[in-house]
Write a protein that binds this DNA or RNA. Structure first.
Lengths: 411, 411
DNA sequence: GAGGTTTTTTCGAGCAGTGAAAATAATGCT
DNA sequence: AGCATTATTTTCACTGCTCGAAAAAACCTC
């Protein structure tokens, strides 16, 4: 049974967490600044810092760096994360590539490996083995950090199984089915966490634009798939509170276009690259979706539509309509103040905006509260990486912070 | 700035809240039982109880009532809420009635007034004045409690304005527009809170069936309107975390049937009583919705459909389809394990189940995770009242608990 | 080097929670 | 009736945390 009892121990944990997260979002700071941000007294900050320094989780920075104008008084000694305190391994799996990153405890990228992925990849190599292989490469390339790998975080697409040990379904060929997270955890003896890409997008965009950081935002990815993450007042929410949704596979038209997932009428079947292409070239929408669309082909389609090509314009109109009605339906349950489009399709926002806004206008919620602000951000890789890294480092913080001396009380 | 600092004060508050909510859900209990439930030590429970007793928030019950079989040992002295510690006034506004209830601090109904409401009611009397009038009736009828009215809670339908002082839109004629909550608060000098009916349904069903209390449930009201509340692992979530949604006005078919809200194609336009009636009698779906459907007319329609009448069956099929696709779209964002239908339309679940399930089956999420359990509960008034009462009493608990001696630290 | 300014640490007080032991209140057995 | 048994509740000594205020430290200017 989870007990919410507050005792002096949990108080310390809470306040320690406050300081760590202030350090995460604000970078190295003086104790005085931390006291101001967290609301703790200087005395408490000092006490907690002594703990953290003793554990070598943080360190005092040597260069006082007093370029802030103030030249009077005792100079502040900045405290920041001890970079070598922990390393996390991040995997971003995509339909056509795997990006493996090693990040230190302060959030600095130490090493990175990019590997192409094909539909055959996970048929030939068991997913857990494939990941383990790349992790070993990192180990040999950065031997001094190898002992301090603390945690693995993986960005995936698809539907997680109940305990988060693997995927029940995924657009990435042959990835679903095995409990690769559990297997990898056993092979490496490190904790492994899976995060849905949509959730990370929602998480990452908060760091992208400070104005969005405490607003309610729906981040929609449009590209080879369609996905969405939700954040509300800073924290990600949604399906199982994971912040991710199956927006791409929300039904748009009953018995409609054939989707890659095998169902019919999903938003993705109209708004993902293959869907737009299919519409633009008047291919029957019951035709099997193209396995992968080269990015240049998609770009040239955008150019044609921008130049006024009727068929291409039609494709983007249908895509906008699908996204628009999907958002309108979503807004019956959530009402974000901002909608952010990311990914390759975000470049086509101007082609789709009309249909999106007219679909939204047809809903009661928008007619009363007004339309949310819709904007585009072209790069989707940065927020995903950022979100994944922050999740992983925050998890390390929690583990370091949580059971200080004694793990559990005698109950 | 909200500070999450933990100090000894907030620890006491937290643990006090733990005890109060254990008392709320478990009824009068011994200190030992409370220690077991909350996880606190006996010593702490005793200390907190002394505070609570001194404040006359709780009281020791005189009748030991040891019918629990155990006859040995020192008999437990049960502690329960001091009933006269506070009273809350609850208003449940509906399209055709207002129910005003007075409830004591232990959750016992003390007085109740039922008043019919017509579309003219709020045109003739300003909403805040109408409520204030009924509150005064309660005051004169129960003079000994009149001094201890602590809080007003109102169940409403429609879209709340940003600060919760009134409604931006409501299906109840002439109720939206004024900040009646703020006005009533000023007139009575009591805090007033508005709650959406859908949210209360979600809250109330948790008390209804203990098996649902920590599951994820979507509670759908089908009657003169269509509404939905969501609860997840015990806490209500959804639009602005309020637990309520605009499910009834989620788009079902672009440019479809005319809804009471003025938009077209809302789920409600197909699945509320007026929608089903319109379809069954082959009235064009662009015809203005009936202002109110007598319950016996709706009941006889159900009987006809159950007897096999083609037109009536068709009406319920379309309703089921609208609800089914709405739920399927909802499940792209949330995945409740249970779906509970309440209200007059719940009696027709067997007529709609087929269409609902086939719509759900067409979604990726259901084809992977399986269909949620769908069941009906006929009485919707009980969970709404229960939910409203619990919200109001919990708010009193919070206020009593929160600023114990000093309101704010000197910061 | 004295005086001023700002950061950091130290110190005593206060308060909350805990476990163990004591007090309390009833029953059951001889 | 007397005493052991059982279970609840309270008391007590102790630990840990935060806090405010005062002291110490570190650097600048004159």
């Amino acid at each position: 049974m989870t007990r919410n009892v507050s005792d002096s121990d949990s108080v310390r944990r809470q306040n320690r967490g406050l300081i760590l997260s202030a350090l995460r979002s604000g970078g190295p700071q003086s104790r005085t600044a931390l006291a101001g941000i967290t609301g703790l007294s200087h005395a408490s900050v000092t006490a907690i810092m002594q703990d953290l320094l003793a554990q070598r989780v943080v360190e005092e920075l040597t260069s006082p760096d007093r370029a802030d104008g103030r030249l009077r008084g005792r100079p502040a000694t900045l405290v920041g994360f001890h970079r070598a305190a922990a390393y996390v391994v991040l995997f971003e799996v995509d339909v056509n590539r795997l990006r493996t990153s090693l990040v230190d405890y302060s959030g600095v990228l130490v090493d990175r490996i990019e590997t192409p992925v094909t539909p055959q990849t996970f048929a030939q190599t068991r997913p857990s083995a494939f990941f383990a292989e790349h992790l070993e490469s990192l180990r040999t390339r950065t031997p001094k950090a190898a002992q301090t790998f603390r945690r693995i975080a993986i960005s995936v697409q698809g539907i997680l199984d109940r305990n988060g040990g693997g995927l029940k379904w995924s657009p990435i060929a042959n990835l679903a089915g095995t409990s690769f997270a559990d297997e990898l955890a056993e092979m490496t003896e490190l904790p492994v966490a899976l995060y849905k890409r949509g959730r990370l997008l929602a998480e990452g965009t908060r760091w992208l634009d400070p104005r969005l950081s405490d607003a309610s935002v729906a981040t929609v990815f449009v590209g080879s798939t369609v996905a969405m993450g939700l954040s509300q007042r800073g924290s990600t929410t949604g399906r199982d509170m994971g912040g991710a949704t199956e927006f791409g596979h929300m039904n748009h038209v009953p018995n409609g276009a054939l989707c890659r997932c095998g169902m019919r009428g999903c938003i993705e079947a109209y708004a993902a690259d293959y869907g737009i292409l299919r519409t633009s070239f008047s291919v029957p929408d019951t035709a099997a979706p193209a396995p992968a669309v080269p990015s240049q082909q998609f770009d040239s389609l955008i150019k044609r539509a921008e130049a006024g090509d009727r068929a291409a314009t039609h494709g983007f109109n249908l895509a906008g309509r699908a996204i628009g009605f999907g958002l309108s339906r979503m807004m019956a349950m959530f009402d974000p103040s901002h909608i952010l489009l990311v990914g390759p399709g975000a470049r086509a926002l101007s082609l789709m905006r009309g249909e999106i806004e007219s679909a939204l206008s047809a809903s009661l919620v928008c007619s009363i509260n007004g339309l949310p602000a819709i904007s585009a951000h072209l790069d989707e890789r940065e927020p995903i990486f950022r979100g994944l890294m922050m999740k992983a480092l925050a998890a390390v913080d929690d583990v370091d912070v949580a059971p200080n001396s004694h793990a559990l009380r005698s109950a």
